[in-house]
Simulated assay, not measured.
Amino acid sequence: MRRLPLPSLWLAAALVLGACSPSAPARAATPVYGYQVVRTYPHDPNAFTEGLFLRDGFLYESTGLEGASSIRKIVLETGSVENERSISSQFFGEGIVDWKDKLIELTWKNQVGFVYDLDDFEARGEFSYAGEGWALTRDDKRLIMSDGTARLRFLDPETLKEIGGITVTDQGRPVDQLNELEWVKGEILANIWQTDRIARIDPATGKVTGWIDLTGLLPAQDRARADVLNGIAYDAKADRLIVTGKLWPRLYEIKLVAKH
């Protein structure tokens, strides 16, 4: 233990007075939400899920791992793949997002992303960024990108250049390992890598306004083969929130339930 010098008389007195004075009010704990499963959908148990979103009734998913990365358009109710494009084996595919008629994808450590036609997945361009690429989502004006740190970057959706960002904190402490993202009702939801928790984030301040605890969502008998929770998709028209994980055999439509 590092030793501190003895306090002077005035400091000692101040410490005594401070000990006798009323303590500062305790900071309220960040709310925690549980879940209720509404419905399940099939999910490819070989899909190492990196990105997920819903559009026009279809599920779009990106998968990772070198030599196994792909982007897919999937019928949610059946799990059948309508369209798929494999990514070059030199890349580890990461998060995806839609913007107008485009699908935009990150890669993990290559510092390059790809732009595709949303309908046929034909290549339409590339872009670069510093650091790692983990996940993407968007509001109606900008893309939002995670890179594994506590910072979320804002990108111009047309130029794909960084235009700002926020640092995510909970009770003043940075929250890193921000992974798959989804924009839901004016806030950002973020998987925290290697946990069963999702952070609810205020996009203006970066403050975590709540935690979603998904402990126990995947049954124990499926855990042995499956990897971590990762993948959030929201259907605004039907108000459906869907989550899954890497190598999970199912997607789960859930409703949030307040715990405390």
Rank of each mutant, 00 (worst) to 15 (best):
residue 8 S to G: 14
residue 9 L to V: 03
residue 11 L to Y: 11
residue 14 A to S: 04
residue 18 G to I: 06
residue 19 A to M: 09
residue 21 S to A: 12
residue 25 P to Q: 10
residue 27 R to Q: 15
residue 30 T to P: 06
residue 35 Y to D: 04
residue 37 V to T: 05
residue 42 P to D: 04
residue 45 P to T: 07
residue 50 E to A: 07
residue 51 G to H: 00
residue 51 G to W: 00
residue 54 L to A: 00
residue 56 D to V: 06
residue 64 G to Q: 08
residue 65 L to T: 13
residue 70 S to Y: 06
residue 77 E to G: 02
residue 77 E to H: 06
residue 77 E to S: 05
residue 83 N to H: 13
residue 87 I to S: 01
residue 89 S to G: 09
residue 90 Q to R: 14
residue 91 F to W: 07
residue 96 I to M: 04
residue 106 L to W: 11
residue 109 K to W: 13
residue 109 K to T: 13
residue 111 Q to W: 10
residue 113 G to Y: 06
residue 126 E to Y: 14
residue 127 F to I: 10
residue 133 G to D: 03
residue 144 I to F: 03
residue 144 I to A: 05
residue 146 S to V: 05
residue 151 R to H: 12
residue 151 R to L: 09
residue 153 R to P: 02
residue 156 D to M: 07
residue 156 D to L: 06
residue 157 P to R: 00
residue 160 L to M: 12
residue 162 E to T: 15
residue 163 I to M: 06
residue 165 G to A: 11
residue 173 R to S: 13
residue 173 R to V: 15
residue 176 D to V: 06
residue 179 N to S: 10
residue 180 E to C: 03
residue 181 L to I: 07
residue 183 W to M: 10
residue 187 E to T: 15
residue 188 I to P: 10
residue 190 A to P: 12
residue 190 A to N: 13
residue 198 I to Q: 02
residue 202 D to Y: 03
residue 207 K to S: 15
residue 210 G to S: 08
residue 213 D to P: 11
residue 222 D to Q: 04
residue 222 D to V: 00
residue 223 R to V: 07
residue 225 R to T: 13
residue 225 R to G: 15
residue 227 D to M: 14
residue 229 L to H: 00
residue 233 A to M: 04
residue 234 Y to S: 06
residue 237 K to R: 09
residue 240 R to Y: 01
residue 242 I to M: 03
residue 244 T to G: 00
residue 247 L to P: 01
residue 250 R to N: 12
residue 253 E to G: 04
residue 256 L to Y: 12
residue 259 K to N: 14
residue 259 K to F: 04
residue 260 H to F: 12
